[in-house]
Design a protein around this nucleic acid. Structure first.
Lengths: 178, 178
DNA sequence: CTATATTTTCAATAATTTCTGAAAATTCAA
DNA sequence: TTGAATTTTCAGAAATTATTGAAAATATAG
C-alpha cells in the first residue's frame, strides 16, 4: 500500500526514469525501494506498482547492474528482499560512477583511438582539433571525478558546500606558496 | 561528403544520443555541426545524414533549445547556416546546465513542495528522512554547480586538474587559519 | 504586393522500447 | 532425490518515440 505522498514521489521517479538512464518502471521500483523502510520482495513490488512479475525481475536486474539495490534474505522466507545499496550519498555516487561509464567512457575511448590511428596524418584540421578538445575535456573531467571519489565523503561535502569559495583559497595558497 | 573518420564520430554521437538526452539524429546533427568547420544549412545536413528535411528542422529546434547551436547568415543566401554556440568548453558547460534543469530541478522542486506541505505532520518517518536526504543532496550539488559556473573558465580548469589535491590545500588552510 | 524560397508543422507510418505472462530454469527444504 | 517455491527468460503484444513528406506558414527579393 502506498500513501498519497509516497505515490506521488514514485510516479515522479517513474517519469524522470528516462532522463536518468532507465525506464519508467525501473524508476518507480527504485523510488519504492529507496523510500520504503522495510525491504520488499518482487511480488510485493509487482503488486504495489501494478506491473508484471517478469517486468519486476528485469527491473531488478537493471538496478543491480547499476549497483543501486541489494538483496536481503529474511529467516524462514525463501523470497529475496530488496533494499538500497547504501545511503542516499552512496547511491548518488554510484549513479555518477555508472553514468560516467555509460555516457563518457565510450566516447573517450573512441576519440582516443581515432586520434592515435591518425597520428601520422594531417592532424591539424578542424575536425581533429575539435576531437582533441573533446577528448581532453572528457579526460580532465574523468580524472577529476576519479580523484573526487577517493576523498572521504565528509571532506567532499565540505568542498561542495564551499563552492566557488575554493577559488579564493586557491588564490591565497598561490600568494603564500606560489 | 563525410570522411571515414568524421563518419565514425558522427555515427558514434548518434548511438550515444539517447544516453545524452536526445535522439539518434539529433546526436548525429550535433556531431556534424561541431566537427565541421564550415557552417552547414539544413539541406546539407539532411543530405549528408540521409534524413528528411522535416527531421532536420525538428533536430535544429532541439539543439537550439539546448543552446548548443546558433545560426549564421551568409550574404546572398537566404538559407540559415548552423554552427556550434561557442567553444567545446562552452558546449560542455551548456550541456551540464541543461541537464541539471531537466534531470535535477524537477525532482528538487517536487521534493521541496512535498516536504513543505507535510511540515506540520509526522515528518520523522523513514520516507520523509529519505526525501529530505535527497532534497539536501540535490540542493548541495545544485548550489555547488551554480557556484562553479560563476568561476572563470581558467580558474575552473585549474581546479579540475588539481583534483583531490584541493583537499590538501583545504587542510593547509585549516591549519593556517582555522 | 506577388512570386519564390525557405522553414515549420503534423498526421500517418516506421522503428524502437517496454511490458506481459507462460514456460523454462533454478533453488532449496524435506 | 523429489517437488514445491521462486526467479528468470523471452516471444509476442502493447506502448512509446522517431521519422517522413506533403501541406501550411513564414520570410524576403524584386
Amino acid at each position: 500500500m502506498l500513501t498519497a505522498e509516497l505515490e506521488s514521489v514514485v510516479m515522479h521517479f517513474g517519469e524522470m526514469g528516462n532522463r536518468w538512464g532507465f525506464n519508467r518502471t525501473v524508476g518507480q521500483m527504485f523510488a519504492l525501494i529507496v523510500f520504503t523502510e522495510e525491504p520488499m520482495n518482487a511480488d510485493q513490488i509487482a503488486a504495489t506498482l501494478g506491473i508484471s512479475r517478469g517486468n519486476v525481475s528485469m527491473g531488478i536486474k537493471e538496478l543491480q547492474s547499476w549497483q543501486l539495490i541489494r538483496t536481503q534474505s529474511l529467516p524462514g522466507d525463501r523470497k529475496d528482499y530488496f533494499k538500497p545499496n547504501g545511503s542516499i550519498w552512496d547511491l548518488a555516487m554510484q549513479v555518477m560512477v555508472e553514468r560516467r561509464k555509460r555516457e563518457m567512457d565510450p566516447t573517450l575511448s573512441l576519440l582516443r583511438s581515432q586520434l592515435i590511428s591518425s597520428e601520422a596524418e594531417d592532424n591539424n584540421n578542424y575536425t581533429h582539433q575539435q576531437m582533441h578538445a573533446i577528448h581532453d575535456l572528457l579526460e580532465m573531467f574523468g580524472g577529476w571525478f576519479t580523484d573526487m571519489q577517493k576523498m572521504k565523503p565528509e571532506q567532499l561535502k565540505t568542498l561542495l558546500k564551499l563552492g566557488s569559495g575554493v577559488g579564493k583559497v586557491l588564490d591565497m595558497k598561490e600568494r603564500l606558496i606560489g
